[in-house]
Amino acid sequence: METVKIRNRDMSWDIAADIHFPPDFDRSKTYPAIISAHPIGSCKDQTSGNVYGVALAREGFVVIAFDASFQGSSGGEPRFIEDPTLRVEDFRHVTDYLVTLPYVDENRIGVLGICGGGGYSINAAMTERRIKAVGTVTGANYGRLMREGFTGYDPIGALEAMARQRTAEARGAEFKVDDLLPPSPAEARRLGVTDRDPLEATEYYRTPRGRQPNGLNRSMPSHQAAAIGWDAFHLAEVLLTQPLCVVVGDQVGAFGAYRDGCEIIGRAASKKKELVVIEGWSHYDLYDKPEPVGQALAKLIPFYRENL
């Protein structure tokens, strides 16, 4: 593995990324490459890199797992901004970097997105034609989530609160940063959290199972307004034409990845598309548990081999 810094030439900061290489990697040869995108509030050191990135590299792909701008080890201030437009632009900068590497075949670049990274991957591929194949694992449409559960189904009220907070910060108030999850599974239960997805998210991110220093699950509410007006699947009927493999678990929760997976398969203009339902497993099981991850990879590996 090699850690690199990719210059975001539009914003003048660096995007941090880990490149995972195939066994017996030879820099004089060319390889297909996969961009691996992490979930909301996550980082390249979690499922996108240390699970799927490592596994796909073992199968002969060069895999680049990157930290979103404003998050993880990437640059950008203030920290913990989750702006979908900027998240999608990160994919372009990572692709720019890949096409400069002599060992990457520029005509064989794919993308894999996990959770919110799945929605971003789909949206990026619509207008980034250097991406030739799109895979998602429990991919979620962050814009839909923001209009629904993440704002208590009151997007207008949330926008008004965000506007007030942004005005306060513009006038010198301290930046407000929210923790998106409770500090422990026990605290989540004490607070009355009962839905599968937030409980399992807490169990993943707030225990040694998935905890990483940069996977902090924090966000600045004053900079969330753009997400409420954004939709990962906008114009998919026209612009999403690449081969598409969407992996979801059938144990559904509040974050809605199963629903989003069904929707994008129905809407995508792609002639080659498949919805893969992993029976008996949930959103966060697909992050790192060997059995469901193995089932997901059993579909994704031949998908990328065929289409890259």
Rank of each mutant, 00 (worst) to 15 (best):
M1G: 07
E2S: 01
K5H: 08
R9Y: 06
R9S: 09
I15S: 03
I19L: 15
P22M: 13
T30D: 05
A33W: 08
I34T: 03
I35F: 04
A37R: 05
H38L: 06
P39M: 07
K44Y: 05
Q46M: 08
G49R: 04
N50V: 15
N50Y: 14
N50K: 15
V51E: 10
V54H: 03
R58L: 07
R58S: 13
V62E: 11
A68G: 07
F80H: 14
I81S: 01
I81P: 00
I81V: 11
P84L: 14
R87I: 00
E89H: 03
R92C: 00
T95H: 13
L98H: 01
T100K: 08
I109T: 10
G110D: 09
V111G: 00
G118T: 06
G118Y: 05
Y120R: 12
I122M: 13
K132Q: 14
V134A: 05
G135E: 08
G135I: 05
G149S: 12
T151S: 15
Y153N: 13
Y153H: 12
D154G: 00
P155H: 12
M162I: 08
A163E: 15
R164C: 05
E169D: 06
E169T: 05
E174A: 15
D178C: 13
D179K: 13
L180H: 09
L181H: 06
P182G: 10
P185Y: 14
P185N: 14
E203D: 06
Y204N: 07
Y205W: 15
P208L: 11
Q224E: 15
A226T: 04
A227N: 14
I228P: 07
W230V: 01
A232P: 03
A236M: 11
V238Q: 15
Q242D: 07
G249F: 03
G249E: 02
D250K: 14
D260Y: 10
D260T: 11
G261E: 09
R267Y: 12
R267P: 06
A268G: 07
V277I: 06
E279N: 12
L297E: 12
A298Y: 12
F303I: 12
L308S: 07
